[in-house]
């Protein structure tokens, strides 16, 4: 029966098309990972912008009309037996002014350990305007047992920072490198 054959062919054709939609859905699911990172950096979502990018020291005019408080916090993630804290918990800067401050890390363990710090900025929008010229987070850090290390960060807050933001928090999470759970 040609009619029935025709119907079966139609069904098969539709099913294949729907399968293509499903496969496209799968591809889209994976594509969301890079898309998300691009989006985060573009609009400062999750305070992720410029995580490791080195900003060039700019010759922008220093905006002396207002001051911004920058709070520094830090924590270590499970598996990393380090003490880690900011030497200056808060710093006041003029937008555009280049400032140097530092964190202190102590390896409390009995082995040399490599750690990596991941910064996060809050409020998230501020991440677009917080520029790091020099930062220990650009490289992995190795600490010998018992070693105490001062780790500098040189930064400035762009004068374009929206006027309603008066406090910016920079938070570092220190992870042990190669500490992936199996």
């Amino acid at each position: 029966m040609g009619d029935l054959e025709q119907k079966k062919a139609n069904n098969k054709q539709l099913a294949v098309r729907l399968l293509i939609v499903a496969v496209a859905g799968l591809a889209f699911g994976f594509a969301l990972a890079p898309l998300y990172n691009i989006l985060c950096e573009a609009i400062g979502l999750n305070g992720k912008a410029d995580i490791t990018a080195t900003a060039a020291a700019s010759n922008t005019v220093i905006d002396q009309s207002r001051k911004v408080t920058v709070l520094f916090t830090g924590e270590t993630m499970p598996g990393l037996d380090w003490g880690f804290s900011a030497n200056e918990p808060n710093v006041e800067v003029y937008p555009g002014e280049i400032k140097l401050t530092s964190y202190k890390a102590i390896n409390r363990g009995k082995q040399a350990v490599v750690g990596s710090a991941v910064p996060s900025i809050s409020p998230e929008v501020a991440s677009l305007y917080f520029k790091k010229i020099e930062c220990f987070c650009f490289n992995q850090q190795t600490l010998q047992p018992g070693e105490i290390k001062d780790m500098p960060i040189r930064f400035f807050v762009s004068p374009d920072l929206p006027k309603d933001i008066k406090t910016v928090t920079l938070s570092y999470s220190f992870y042990k490198v190669d500490n992936k759970p199996k």
Binding site: L18, V21, A22, V23, A24, G25, L26, A27, F28, G29, F30, L32, A33, K180, P181, K182
Partner: peptide, 23 residues
């Protein structure tokens, strides 16, 4: 059809994060 494959993608990423060193 549109949403289950996205979950499958996410679950696969979770699985490779757990076992194959992705992040």
């Amino acid at each position: 059809i549109a949403s289950m494959p996205v979950l499958a993608g996410a679950l696969t990423m979770l699985l490779t994060d757990r076992h194959f060193g992705t992040s």
